[in-house]
Design a protein around this nucleic acid. Structure first.
Lengths: 182, 182
DNA sequence: ATAGGTAGTGATTGGCCACTAACTTAGAAC
DNA sequence: GTTCTAAGTTAGTGGCCAATCACTACCTAT
């Protein structure tokens, strides 16, 4: 049961991704995260300086993880073949809703922070996101419009997942309509 | 200063859209909404049964408002001309971030409700969104793929706005690349 | 003018939650 | 087996917030 602080931090990040994805920043208590980790709530504050730091770690992990999925799916491919492979991989993430929702929570949290006058998290989030965008853009051939197109569909998938449209709902039928060609 | 309950409800909905857009459901206090309206906090509970109901009213208004923008922009147009006009109108909404962010807050709130085991708000949100989708689809010619494409780009705009990329950032340059053709 | 309904407020409360402080226990090293 | 360090806990605090209750002010009709 006992593990090193570094290992614990790792499991906290994983638990936090799930809890924050479902509840958002304000809607998630540190108690809930601790319970999922299997540790007492105050101990989180010995592993991280505060709730905010846990969220930021989870957010960063989430973006990294997304790239990992893209990277694995498109290994050795380029151009539209890579785009297709990554699209398919992202559709696969629909089954792991927490991953997609953590992204959304990051987006709205950045906005909330900005609205509250704190710019801290925004900078790092933009850097993370832009870096993901760039890596994908290069992988699919370098065209800006293609990358925009790719991410646009990803964001729509996030939205439909958030709203809870079942997988066989007709709203999903618009995907794959143009995809193979592009 | 004194106004009818109906008028007050109207101004509460408008104020709530702004506050919820910036803070999210959990991050917005009824106190903040009341302050923006210029009314005491307890009075909100005479106008609405609870915080949840205020959020739902704001969410519905937000989707309706989005359609109003699309409808006005594309009045008399059809097909790709309508799509172009609506795209441009949506880009115009980037200047009114609260409108876009209220959408995002609705999406994550629906997911949060689902995760917490309450399905109530999800049903109405999906109905609202699908109805918007359908009206747009018809307006731009009826093709499912085109409508998907249209909304995908809208959702990406939401994301970039949330993350706070400045308007002249290169991340925006991927729009308009394919747009006129489609 | 007064009666009655509607708009609106002040005071309060019970519950939750991030965070702190003080303490306890496991295990590695010798 | 004792000692020392790092992992972990129990108990508590101050602040915030949704919702309630009892009350006051305004307007309108007769």
């Amino acid at each position: 049961m006992r593990m090193s602080a570094e290992e614990r931090r790792e499991s906290v990040v994983r638990a936090a991704m799930i809890e924050f994805a479902r509840g958002g920043y304000r809607g998630t208590s540190t108690e809930a995260i601790a319970r999922r980790v299997g540790v007492s709530q105050p101990y989180l504050f010995r592993l991280f300086p505060g709730k905010q730091a846990i969220f930021e770690a989870a957010a960063e992990r989430c973006v990294e993880e997304t790239w990992r999925v893209f990277d694995e799916a498109s290994a050795g491919l380029t151009g539209s073949a890579a785009a297709e492979a990554m699209s398919e991989a992202y559709m696969g993430l629909v089954g792991d809703r927490d991953q997609l929702m953590m992204q959304m929570q990051l987006y709205v949290s950045v906005f909330a922070a900005r609205a509250a006058g704190e710019e801290g998290i925004g900078d790092s989030a933009r850097r993370l996101w832009e870096s993901l965008f760039e890596r994908v853009r290069i992988r699919i051939g370098g065209d800006m419009g293609d990358a925009t197109h790719f991410f646009a569909h990803g964001m729509l998938i996030n939205t439909l997942v958030a709203l809870g449209f079942p997988e066989d709902h007709r709203i999903w039928s618009g995907f794959n309509a143009h995809d193979p060609a592009e």
